[in-house]
């Protein structure tokens, strides 16, 4: 299926120049707290993508009937309904991961990416572009999460997805896991590094003031 350039921009923009986390600064809350291991990061990324995409579609279908004054409540209710479904599914099929994510699945409701996309895109566009926009933003959010989760698990506990990857010989030679990586602040530092690299490559995104 050939995509027109507009659809392409809607779908792929959020992966790089328009990334929700490192450029638009949305959805940081959950991004930082769940990334101490790779697996919860992946689950979180998938959940957010699904919720954003479908909430976008629903709001886009309803956009002509929602009164302006109560639109935030309507958006939140739609989002909360979708998140409830996702969280029940997780409880049924991935209970352990759900435990690790704790309140952060519920917090997808107030994930700023969700509200931001609903406000900025779904209210003004048709269902199909909105769906693509949701997928794009979910993936843009997801790859940051996966990168951060990858480094934190690799350096912090020497494993990936729960499997040991650092050979025992290295530990015998004196290598030790960096416990600091498992602590929450390191997630922010890693995101800061990603921002640094990203902005060094994309000069037009650099800010003038501190």
């Amino acid at each position: 299926m050939a995509l027109s350039s507009k659809t392409k921009a809607v779908l792929l923009g959020p992966l790089n120049k328009n990334n929700p986390i490192i450029v638009q600064v949305l959805g940081i809350c959950s991004a930082l707290a769940v990334t101490s291991k790779l697996e919860p990061s992946l689950v979180m990324a998938i959940s957010v993508t699904i919720v954003v995409a479908f909430a976008n579609v629903i709001i886009s279908l309803l956009r002509k009937t929602i009164p302006n004054r109560i639109r935030i409540i309507v958006q939140l209710v739609v989002a909360a309904a979708l998140v409830t479904i996702v969280s029940e599914v997780l409880k049924a099929y991935a209970y352990d991961v759900n435990k690790q994510l704790s309140v952060f699945v519920g917090l997808i409701v107030t994930n700023c990416i969700l509200m931001g996309r609903l406000e900025a895109f779904a209210l003004g566009n048709g269902p199909w572009p909105s769906f693509l926009d949701g997928i794009g933003n979910g993936l843009g959010y997801g790859w940051i999460l996966v990168v951060v989760g990858f480094f934190r698990e690799l350096l912090g506990s020497g494993s990936l997805m729960g499997h040991k990857v650092i050979p025992q010989a290295l530990y015998d030679a004196g290598y030790e896991d960096n416990g600091l990586m498992m602590l929450a602040p390191m997630a922010i530092l890693l995101v800061a590094c990603i921002i640094w690299i990203h902005r060094a490559k994309n000069k037009e995104l650099q800010e003038e003031t501190n």
Binding site: A184, P185, M186, I188, A192, I195, W196, A200
Partner: peptide
């Protein structure tokens, strides 16, 4: 004096991390 790519968002993140530590 902050390195250019770190201006704004980047340095804010780093400060948050240091405060959190």
């Amino acid at each position: 004096h902050v390195p250019k790519p770190l201006k704004g968002l980047g340095i804010t993140f780093i400060i948050t991390a240091l405060m959190a530590i």
